[in-house]
Design a protein around this nucleic acid. Structure first.
Length: 355
DNA sequence: CACGCGTGGCC
DNA sequence: TGGCCAAGCGT
C-alpha cells in the first residue's frame, strides 16, 4: 500500500503517546489472550486489576484449565459479562486438550476458541505471532469512519465488510502488531467518541470528517437499547447458620453466578402475602420463619434491564424440617462468601454484617 | 442476524 | 439525571 502515510502518522503518534500497559510488554499468547478477553467492552482502568489478579492466580494456561469454574467466576466477579469467564475457562481446557497446552498461533485457529471472535483472533494473531491481520473494534470503526468520512451505520451487517476493507487498506506489510495497537490507542486517547481535540490531531489535515465538520456526527450508530423493568424479591433463607443458594442457569442474566431464592414479578408488588398467593414454597417458609431483615429497594441498572429488588432475610425455625427445591443447597457463611455472586447480591451482602 | 449479556464512569 | 459508552461474542 502506498498511501500508508495514515498508518505511519498514527504509529508515530502511538510511539509518543502510548500508555505503558502490562500486556504490551509480552508476546506470551496466554497473557495477550487473557487481556483481550478482559478488555472486551471494558475500560482499561476497570480491567487492569482483574488482569493482575488472574495472572497471579493462574500464571499459565494449565493453571487456569485446572481450576474450578466457580473459582474462575469468583475471580471475575464484579467485571460483568460473565460468559467471558465461562468461555475463558472452557478455552483454557481446549488449549490443554486439543493443542497440547500450546496456544494456537494463527488467526483461523484462534477463531475456533470459545469467546474468541474476529476482533480477538486478529488481536492475538498480530500481537503474539506477528500475523498480518487487521483488528476491527469500536475504536477502529470510529477512527476509520472519521478519517474516510464513512457514514455506513456501524450497527449494520454491511459495516463489517465496508470497514474491514478500509482497515486492510491502511494495514502495512510490516509490523501489523504496532499498527493495530496504534490505531486502537489513537481511538481511545485522541480520536475519542465525544469532543476529540482535533486541534492537536496529527491527522487533522487528512481527515474527511474534520474537513466537513462531521467529526461529532461520526461514526453513525443506530442501535438503541430498550430497557426492560423487572421486580425481584430475594429471600435469604437461613437455618442453623446455613444459607440457601443456587447457581443461576439458563439464558437469563448472571448465568453461573450464585444467588438466593428469587420471586420475580412483572409488576411492582410489595406485599409478601400477595406474593405468597402464587408461590407455595414462599408461603411455607413464611409460615415457619422470622423476618430478620427487610431491605430497602435496590435499583440495579444493566444495559438492557432495570431491576428493582427487595431482600428479605428469613430465619427458619430450627425444628422445622425444611425441604429445599432441588436447585437450592445449603452453604455456610464462609462458603457464601466464596461463591461467585452478582454485584446486586454483593451490594446487599456488603451493606451489613451477618451476626 | 438481531438481540442479550454487566459494570462503572462520564457529561 | 439518564443516556451513552468501553479492546465483542454467542446464539
Amino acid at each position: 500500500m502506498e498511501n500508508n502515510f495514515i498508518s505511519k502518522k498514527i504509529s508515530s503518534w502511538y510511539l509518543q503517546h502510548k500508555r505503558d500497559l502490562p500486556w504490551r510488554n509480552t508476546q506470551n499468547p496466554y497473557y495477550i489472550w487473557l487481556s483481550e478477553i478482559i478488555l472486551q467492552q471494558t475500560r482499561v482502568v476497570q480491567g487492569m486489576p482483574y488482569y493482575y489478579k488472574f495472572i497471579e492466580a493462574f500464571p499459565t494456561v494449565q493453571d487456569l484449565a485446572n481450576a474450578d469454574e466457580n473459582e474462575v467466576l469468583r475471580l471475575w466477579q464484579g467485571l460483568g459479562y460473565y460468559s467471558r469467564a465461562r468461555n475463558l475457562h472452557k478455552t483454557a481446557k481446549m488449549v490443554l486438550e486439543n493443542y497440547a497446552g500450546e496456544f494456537p498461533n494463527t488467526y483461523q485457529e484462534l477463531l475456533k476458541l470459545k469467546g474468541v471472535g474476529t476482533y480477538t483472533a486478529a488481536a492475538i494473531a498480530s500481537f503474539a505471532f506477528g500475523e498480518k491481520v487487521a483488528v476491527l473494534d469500536g475504536n477502529v470503526y470510529r477512527v476509520l469512519s472519521r478519517i474516510f468520512g464513512e457514514s455506513t451505520d456501524i450497527s449494520s451487517n454491511e459495516a463489517k465488510k465496508v470497514f474491514m476493507q478500509l482497515a486492510e487498506s491502511i494495514l502495512p506489510d510490516q509490523d501489523a502488531a504496532t499498527h493495530n495497537q496504534a490505531i486502537m490507542e489513537f481511538g481511545a486517547l485522541q480520536c475519542t467518541p465525544s469532543s476529540p481535540n482535533c486541534m492537536f490531531c496529527p491527522l487533522a489535515m487528512d481527515c474527511v470528517a474534520n474537513a466537513k465538520g462531521q467529526v461529532a456526527a461520526l461514526p453513525v450508530k443506530s442501535k438503541k437499547v430498550k430497557v426492560k423493568e423487572r421486580f425481584f424479591h430475594y429471600f435469604i433463607i437461613e437455618q442453623n447458620g446455613n444459607f440457601a443458594m443456587r447457581k443461576r442457569v439458563g439464558k437469563d442474566v448472571w448465568e453461573g453466578m450464585y444467588d438466593f431464592y428469587l420471586n420475580e414479578s412483572d409488576e411492582n408488588i410489595q406485599e409478601l402475602s400477595y406474593l405468597a398467593l402464587e408461590d407455595k414454597f414462599l408461603e411455607k417458609i413464611l409460615e415457619n420463619s422470622l423476618i430478620k431483615r427487610e431491605s430497602s429497594i435496590y435499583t440495579h441498572i444493566l444495559t438492557h434491564q432495570k431491576i428493582q429488588t427487595k431482600f428479605w432475610h428469613l430465619v427458619i425455625n430450627n425444628n422445622f424440617p425444611l425441604h429445599l427445591p432441588t436447585e437450592l443447597d445449603w452453604y455456610s457463611l464462609n462458603e457464601v462468601d466464596d461463591l461467585p455472586k452478582s454485584t446486586l447480591v454483593n451490594n446487599y451482602l456488603s451493606s451489613f454484617v451477618f451476626e
